[in-house]
Structure formats: structure tokens, C-alpha cells
Design a protein around this nucleic acid. Structure first.
Lengths: 157, 157
DNA sequence: GGAGATTGGTAGCATGTTGCAACTGGATGG
DNA sequence: CCATCCAGTTGCAACATGCTACCAATCTCC
């Protein structure tokens, strides 16, 4: 079930990320986890997904190290699913998707959920791609470079 | 084919984004578009995807306003697919996914492609979520708030 | 300007995945 | 202990995916 390399260019980090997340439901599970969901039923109600699908995705996310199963939290004998540090690192991805959606899929007066600073309830600043020395970069200012293993034992010549 | 609201919580921008992109192939198409691919054959070779799948995804991305079909560029009578401004706004999403993949799916000496500043070829700074006044925010510092239409004509009381 | 390669698809078909609904079985509560 | 909820699993039908073959238009080259 852990299908390796669904995509052929698996040396691209984007492809690996995409492969690790699995599918969009999984990403929405992660979104709900950021939003406080922990229990199977919470995810199920929040997403409206079929239970077998949810169970499979949760298992995949646990296998992939994005979620952890912890035994309890409120005294009951059930399990909870919590984000691992790796899963918490998806925060940027979720925020980026959220900001893209907010910018392009909602009329100004349309109701929508919004992510805000917990402290002052103001909306977040838009994410910015920056160079190592802090300049803002747009899509044309960055290129993808192949990085070879720096000093590893590759195939002998 | 333009299935509306695959997910039930379509007032969440993340869900709408996810729905608009369609599937992971589409995101990799966008990635390759950022990387300079423009022609059908380029995408096909770059991704190794079946042609019918690619054709369907390109059509969906064009319908969704992420790509545009422009008649030519090198004199030939074929088409090219270029990112719209909306598509270019996915840059943050791609970079976020790429950085997550780089951070978690590669051994230090493993070869991988890397996104670098075009000017000095140095790797980019990690994306940072910031509040309106510039504080760095982690997953626990942000909450999702429902935003109602500010002064719209809602259902009369 | 015709032969053959290239580009950009479509069509058919096998297989895999999704998702609904029904079922299970342990916890919980009264 | 009986009813109910929680957390899944199982069966099955429908749909989507992806491979291969095919096809038409375009380009290349002589």
C-alpha cells in the first residue's frame, strides 16, 4: 500500500511531498488537525468523508510520519491523532494554499473562514519567498538546480 | 467535468484551492510550468504521465484559470500553455511543498533538485508565516475564524 | 511538394480507487 | 444489562486512472 514513486521524477522534493501526503483528503485532514481536530469522529464530521476513506488516510498519514496515534487525552480509552513535528512543518503549505484560495476564489463580500493571528485576531501577512540575503523573489527570480551528492561514493569511474 | 465542491466544506479556502488544482498531477504540471515547460510534449516528457491524463489536466487547469493557451511562441502552429497571474500565485505553494520535501525526504548527501536564487545560485530562505505586524507565527499562534459578509444583504430577519 | 517524422491529441479497455451502506465490536452510561 | 456512541472494517457498485493503440494535423527535409 505504500506505493513507491507514484511519479517518475522522485528526486524532486515537490514530487516526494506530494507522494507523501497522498491525496487531497489527507491534506484536509492535516488542515483540520491544525485546527484542533484530534479524534476520528471529529475528522469525520469536519470533512464529511466516508469512514473507510478516512481510516485509510489516517493510517497512511501515520505511516508517513505526519500524524501520531496517541492513546488518550481525556481519559477515555480511544485514540487520538496528533501532528508530528514533520506534520507541523506542513503549516507553510496549508497557509500558502489558504492564502491562494482567499485571493482567488472568494468574492470580497463572500463569507469564508480566515486564518488570523491568535493574539490580535488580525489576518496574517502574505507569505513571501525570499533569497538568502532577504530580497523578495518572484517566480522568475528562482531556478531549479540539480544538486549532486557533494562528496559521496558514487559509481566508480 | 467541472465537479463542484468535491469537498463539503467549500467555504474553506484550502478546500477551494485543493478543488481548483484538481489533483497532484496538476500541481506537478504547474511546477514544470514554473520551471519553463510550455509545450504539451515538454510536460509529457517531464512528468512521464499518460497523454490522455495530461490532456485532461491541462484542460482543467486552463478551465480553472491557472494556465492559458497561447497560440505560439517560436513560429510553429502549435499551442503553448503558460501560467496566468493566478497560476503564478501558486509559487508560494510550490515553494512550501518543495521546502517541506527537502527538509524531510532527503538524506543530507542524497542528490536532489533544489530551488535557488537565480542571481547568486544560493538556496532560498525558508518561508515564514508572519503576523500583520511582522512577528513569526507557528501553527499554534494562528486560529481560523469564520468571517461573515461585512455589510451584505443576508437573509432578512 | 511528397515521405516520413513529430506534435498533440482521442478511443478502448483493464485495473485500481472511491465512496456508500451495512455490519462489527468494544466503550459508556443509565 | 440494555441502548447508544465511537471507531472502525467489509462488500460491492461506480467511477477514475492509466496503458496502448490509433489518428489527424503539422513540420522537416530533400
Amino acid at each position: 500500500m505504500v506505493r513507491r514513486t507514484r511519479f517518475n521524477d522522485s528526486d524532486c522534493p515537490v514530487a516526494r511531498s506530494v507522494d507523501a501526503i497522498g491525496d487531497w483528503w489527507s491534506l484536509l485532514i492535516v488542515r483540520d488537525a491544525f485546527d484542533g481536530s484530534r479524534r476520528f469522529g471529529e475528522f469525520q464530521r469536519g470533512l464529511g468523508v466516508a469512514k473507510n476513506i478516512l481510516a485509510a488516510r489516517l493510517r497512511a498519514l501515520v505511516d508517513g510520519g505526519v500524524l501520531d496515534v496517541v492513546p488518550a487525552s481525556d481519559g477515555s480509552a480511544y485514540n487520538e491523532y496528533v501532528l508530528t513535528p514533520k506534520g507541523r512543518d506542513l503549516f507553510n503549505v496549508i497557509v500558502a494554499l489558504r492564502q491562494w484560495g482567499e485571493a482567488h476564489f472568494f468574492a470580497p463580500e463572500e463569507p469564508h473562514s480566515e486564518i488570523v493571528d491568535r493574539r490580535d485576531e488580525r489576518p496574517l501577512r502574505a507569505l513571501e519567498v525570499r533569497s538568502a540575503d532577504g530580497r523578495r523573489l518572484g517566480p522568475d527570480d528562482a531556478v531549479v538546480k540539480k544538486v549532486a551528492p557533494p562528496a559521496a561514493a558514487h559509481t566508480p569511474s
